[in-house]
Design a protein around this nucleic acid. Structure first.
Length: 293
DNA sequence: ACTGTACCCTGTAGGC
DNA sequence: TGCCTACAGGGTACAG
């Protein structure tokens, strides 16, 4: 479910609740998510003040006063809700109804101000690990990650350099977290559309013969940053239109140009194409065969 | 070293 | 209504 814009929205929603607060108690309601919880998970969290809440790629990272970091990934269906005075709200506001009654609530963080932060994850593809802050960048889950797409590190030259020797298509290239960290199926589709590039084009065509970035790399860089920026502004995308008791949902799905629009008309001015759905690597691609080349 | 496929798990939507 | 299948925003572990 959550790609970079959704995780960033969750971070912004949770930060005011967590940062400066102290963890009074942690309940784990099963032994594992995707992986077993870290050894002595609850003990290592109990009593800790949360000093910062960061995002790296699709990971949420809570810094603790103990010097450890709690690193969390939401997988496909993970989401956090905040319970205060009996009311549950979803920071990020892209929740869907399943689990609203408490099924699949796997972790409950009890905070010293009386609020609770609840992790719910129907498919349990999410996971939580702990690592010393100083060693965070060497952790197996984090060390191989590529550049943050909204940072200056994502540039046409970077894309061309990484793509130059690759045999994969552009879609797979951009989905690879070791190249660009945080893109997923939705935003790759939207960025490729905005850059007028076909998902099945060879990734290496972002570089010219001498290996330098070309105009395609330029367009793609701009498109990625623009799509992600607008999606964060819209508080991410909600595919199942649910509103939690206190908030709205993400709004970027209204701005989709290709994702989930199979058979519909292309929205590029002057283009008479129809959005097509194809499959590669077991995942759906959406693109306009007419204006994406 | 790369690339493609199977798999992890549950809920939902659509065809019959 | 029920049953069955396909599919879903994530990533990993293999085999080739």
């Amino acid at each position: 479910m959550p790609e970079l814009p959704e995780v960033e929205t969750v971070r912004r929603g949770l930060a005011p609740v967590l940062v400066g607060n102290r963890i009074k108690k942690v309940e784990t309601r099963r032994a594992d998510l995707r992986f077993p919880f870290p050894d002595h998970f609850a003990d290592r969290l109990r009593g800790q003040e949360i000093t910062a809440l960061e995002r790296r790629a699709k990971y949420l990272i809570a810094q603790l006063a103990s010097g450890e970091d709690l690193v969390m990934h939401l997988g496909m269906t993970g989401r956090f809700t905040v319970a205060q005075d009996g009311l549950r709200t979803t920071p990020g506001e892209y929740a869907h109804p399943a689990g609203a009654d408490g099924t699949h609530d796997h972790v409950v963080f009890h905070l010293s101000d009386g609020s609770r932060v609840i992790y719910n994850d129907a498919r349990r593809f999410g996971f939580m690990v702990m690592v010393a802050h100083d060693e965070r960048d060497m952790h197996p889950f984090l060390r191989g990650l590529g550049v943050e797409p909204l940072s200056v590190a994502l540039s046409p030259d970077y894309l061309a350099a990484r793509a130059r020797t690759k045999k994969v298509n552009l879609k797979s290239f951009l989905m690879d977290q070791r190249v660009v960290a945080g893109l997923g199926n939705i935003y790759v589709a939207e960025a490729l559309y905005q850059a007028h590039l076909a998902p099945d084009r060879a990734a290496r065509t972002l570089a010219d013969r001498s290996g330098k970035a070309n105009d395609k790399a330029d367009r793609l860089t701009v498109a990625i940053k623009d799509v992600l920026g607008r999606a964060i502004e819209a508080r991410g995308s909600t595919l199942r239109d649910y509103r939690d008791p206190s908030g709205g949902s993400g709004g970027f799905q209204a701005a989709f140009r290709v994702y989930n629009r199979e058979g519909e008309a292309c929205r590029t001015p002057g283009c008479s194409g129809t959005i097509r759905r194809t499959v590669s690597g077991g995942r759906a691609n959406f693109h306009c065969p007419r204006c994406q080349r």
